[in-house]
Amino acid sequence: MSSITLGRYVPRDTFIHRLDPRVKILSLILLMVAIFISYSTWEMTFIIGGILALFIFLLALISNTSFKALFKSLRAMWFLIIFLLLVNVLVKPKDAQWVAFSIGSLNIYWESIFQSLKIILRLFLMVSLTMILTTSTKPLDLTYALEWYMKPLKFIKFPTHEVAMTISIALRFIPTLLNEVERIMKAQTSRGVDFKHGRISSRFKAIISLIVPLFIASFQRAEELADSMEARGYNPKAKRTTYHKLRFSVNDLFAFILCGAFMAATIVFTVMDFTIKTPLFVPWLVIGCFCVLVYLFGLGAANARRYKK
């Protein structure tokens, strides 16, 4: 079950927890773009990647996301990482010439090592960002935010409300169904089914003895839930009011500007083909980082003062 608890919502009261979920989703997308833009040289990639990594660690720090959980996600991806390393190392890049070492007649190039490191860094940053989002935002709030973003689709008769309701009910029933899985597993184990040992084929059979009752129970639940919702006057076609309101505050604007600036800066860097040798690159970078730090510091101070009141 530990893989499911990874990235689960942790109720805290931090600056990031309080942000509007709509802004958080948009910022996630903006930062993802920044992460996935490629640069002309390795140095650039690692400088920008490093700055982004620092920023993301800062976000994790502010949102009180545990670093242990972030690195656990790396461990969960170990297979993917090894696979990427192998593929990148064994396939010779086109203009690779910088040999790191050789195993027999096989040359391993620095370029391919960098390439795989770059992909791993990107994956790690992406997963960390997503985890910060999910640990700092209630699933239900994410659903409301998604519903809000889907609003324009209403014009093409897309059932946005139904989709949001479906997602929120699915989220609500995840723990309930997990309990059920545990119960069925215990029940089947007591009848001699072995889920943990044995060959793959026998384990697969064991899983079937779990899935069939689970499905039947879920359908029963769904039917009862539908009855109860209908009895309480739910009618997806009819007009409903909403209890939740998403609030866009000044902090949200600041957070949005910051993430937007990050994305804009990375785009500017690639379009203008900045490298570390570009005149004035280093001073600009230092000034930029300084601005961001001052901005963050001001934001923190402003919120700290409001918090004391």
């Binding site: 919702m229 006057g233 009618n235 409903r240 009011t241 209890y243």
Partner: peptide, 24 residues
């Protein structure tokens, strides 16, 4: 379990009120 629609007690109570179009 099967008649608890909301994510929390508060949301569940709000669910019925939303259906009745009660003002927020």
């Amino acid at each position: 379990d099967n008649q608890f629609v909301g994510a929390t007690v508060r949301d569940d109570l709000a669910f019925g009120l939303e259906n009745r179009c009660i003002k927020r």
